[in-house]
Simulated scan of single mutants.
Amino acid sequence: MRYLMTLAFLVITFASQAEQCLQSPPKSANFVSEPANNKLTRSQEASLNRLFKELSRSWVGKSSGYYCVGEEPQSAHKEYKSHQLEITFSNDESLILRAHSQAQDSDEFSQKLSSLTVYADQGFLRFDQNNAAGDIWIEQLSSTHLSVWSISRAGTVYHLINRVIKRSAGAFTITMTTYSNNRLTSYYEGHLRH
């Protein structure tokens, strides 16, 4: 079993590393020019409720990934990073999931703290802000798999972010892929257990 998990991790890692820096988002992400697809059905709300309850605890593991350095695809390269990771999810209010993470950089001994709140409130799924500013696009949603896209802006740069959570018994994986001004700029994947 441990061999199969290691093999699956290597296959996933190799596939993610095969992506070229500064490439365009996948064609499946072209829906983000349309109004947000975040209106939840009753079935999706029930699936999210189950997912939120299953995640609601502390998790530890490792993350690895890269960020892209360079201006042109031909000369851009990947700077790899790995972290010891701890994420605590709380689900104190129905259909609201709060995540607090702490990442310990394995090379530089620095810590990064971050947080995220997911709202499944009043029939909508939103990140960080429970209003239209937090709108996201749902790509896939079940009680074990959530894949969403969101947009954030910083001045003239906008970031298209794909977040994916896949839950299994006693473990989950989380990935985050960022495209800045429609070019791949970073990818991280975490594997955690409780």
Rank of each mutant, 00 (worst) to 15 (best):
T6R: 14
C68E: 01
R153F: 06
R126S: 05
M1G: 09
A99Y: 03
Q20S: 12
F124P: 00
S142E: 05
L10G: 05
Y179L: 05
L7C: 10
I12C: 09
A103N: 04
F124K: 10
F124D: 00
R42P: 14
E108Q: 10
N131L: 02
E139L: 09
S180H: 06
L40R: 04
F89N: 00
Y119I: 03
G155Y: 04
R98E: 15
K53S: 11
F124A: 04
Y66P: 06
T6A: 15
K53M: 12
N49R: 07
S110L: 12
L141Y: 01
S101H: 08
H191Q: 15
E54I: 11
R183F: 03
I161R: 10
M1E: 10
R167T: 13
T175H: 05
S24F: 08
S58K: 08
H159N: 13
L113H: 08
G70C: 04
S24I: 08
S43G: 11
S115K: 03
T177E: 15
L184R: 03
S43M: 03
V157S: 14
R183M: 12
Y158L: 05
Q74N: 02
A36I: 06
Q17K: 05
G61L: 09
F31G: 15
L125E: 04
A133C: 05
D105G: 05
F9Y: 13
A15Q: 06
K166H: 15
G70M: 09
A29V: 04
L192R: 09
F52E: 00
T185D: 08
R126D: 02
V164L: 13
I136V: 15
M176D: 08
S150D: 07
R2Y: 14
L22Q: 03
S143D: 15
K112N: 11
Q122S: 12
I12G: 02
D121I: 06
A154W: 06
T175W: 02
S106M: 11
T177G: 06
S90P: 01
S28P: 02
E19D: 11
N49T: 04
Y80A: 08
V60I: 14
F124Y: 13
T177N: 13
S150F: 11
E139M: 02
S56Q: 05
D121F: 02
T185W: 01
A76I: 14
T175A: 13
R193T: 15
F124W: 06
N162K: 13
N38V: 01
A8C: 13
N130P: 07
S115P: 01
V60R: 10
E45G: 09
E34I: 00
H191G: 05
H77T: 11
R57A: 11
Y119Q: 03
Y158S: 14
A76C: 12
N182Q: 15
